[in-house]
């Protein structure tokens, strides 16, 4: 029982990582997606390379680079650079890249006739995107976004590599101290419940958009 308060505290940190990452990665992904879809090679070229590197290397490595990079690569020591901030930066960029590819697939799946109908009716480019295209994109990307979001919940445990006291870090510490896997099992249960709620919320969103096809 006495392990619950520290675990709960770790859970709060995990939830914070999760929410802050989503908050940053969702809009950032949109920016990357538009860069990727830009007609000019000078813009879409580097973005393609960036996406390819971010998807082709482990998140854990990216996390280490973001945290230790400033010192080991550039010899700048950032006094009081909190590991938590590094986690948010690394996670946000990594997830933004995955989101960007989901957005792009969603945007490109909208039939060109939708743009043409909107253009003929006089909608401006912005109106067309926000009123006609985006709502349809959101409906189409919800299922893959649910997958990514659930993966993000589990990925929060990677923050342990730079000693952020999220739930997994604490569960491991407790398990070592008590020579028992009980703390890890409880943490596992918490992750499961967390994801159960996430999945439920996403399903609710999908239901809300069920009124059209």
């Amino acid at each position: 029982m006495e392990m619950l308060p520290p675990l709960a505290k770790g859970l709060v940190t995990s939830i914070n990582i999760f929410l802050l990452t989503l908050l940053c990665a969702c809009p950032l992904g949109m920016v990357i997606a538009f860069g990727r879809m830009n007609r000019h090679l000078v813009i879409n070229g580097p973005i393609r390379l960036f996406i390819s590197v971010m998807r082709g290397t482990p998140l854990m490595l990216q996390l280490l680079v973001v945290y230790f990079g400033p010192y080991y690569i550039f010899r700048v020591s950032l006094a009081g650079y909190p590991p938590f901030l590094a986690v948010i930066i690394a996670f946000s960029i990594n997830y933004a890249v995955y989101f960007a590819e989901i957005y792009r697939a969603g945007i490109q799946s909208i039939p060109v006739g939708q743009y043409e109908a909107a253009t003929v009716l006089g909608y401006s480019k912005l109106q067309t995107f926000f009123k006609i295209i985006l709502p349809q994109v959101i409906k189409r990307i919800l299922p893959p976004m649910t997958n990514e979001t659930i993966t993000l919940v589990k990925d929060t445990s990677l923050a342990q590599v730079i000693a952020v006291a999220e739930m997994f870090t604490i569960a491991k510490r407790l398990a070592n101290a008590q020579s028992s896997v009980l703390a890890l099992a409880v943490a596992g249960l918490f992750y499961y419940i967390f994801n159960f709620i996430v999945a439920m919320v996403m399903e609710k969103c999908e239901k809300c958009l069920d009124y059209y096809r």
Partner: peptide, 15 residues
Amino acid sequence: SMFGLVFQNFNLFPH
């Protein structure tokens, strides 16, 4: 607003 166009595939907005 001076002309209208009717498409082969209707292109109504599904949402």
